[in-house]
Amino acid sequence: MLYIDCPYCGKRAHEEFTYIGDATKKRPDGAEKNDPAWVDYVYTRDNPRGPHLELWHHGLGCREVVKVLRNILTHEILGAGRPADDIPLPETETKP
């Protein structure tokens, strides 16, 4: 189980959450319809082999969207917060 620290509910098993996806994608509200930013927003991904900022929806909990920093090579959870929070990489180096 991945244990995600929901800002409201506390640490919970990931089965309570729905994975939404890459949290670094900002919806280009206001961009013209033909702006390539839309294709980029919907389709392209950094897909890093390491720390990854992502959104999880706590559907079986408070129904809030949680922003999570997770190393997707190791599944280690490095931080969690609300969508607008800035979640920095922890100071200690993550395990490979």
Binding site: G21, D22, D40, Y43, T44, R45, D46, N47, P48, R49
Partner: peptide
């Protein structure tokens, strides 16, 4: 599954998640 990783070395982003 490692396509995105190699592509990133070329500065390319792809419509792929692993």
């Amino acid at each position: 599954g490692n396509t995105g990783y190699l592509a990133s070395k070329l500065g390319m982003k792809l419509p792929i998640e692993s």
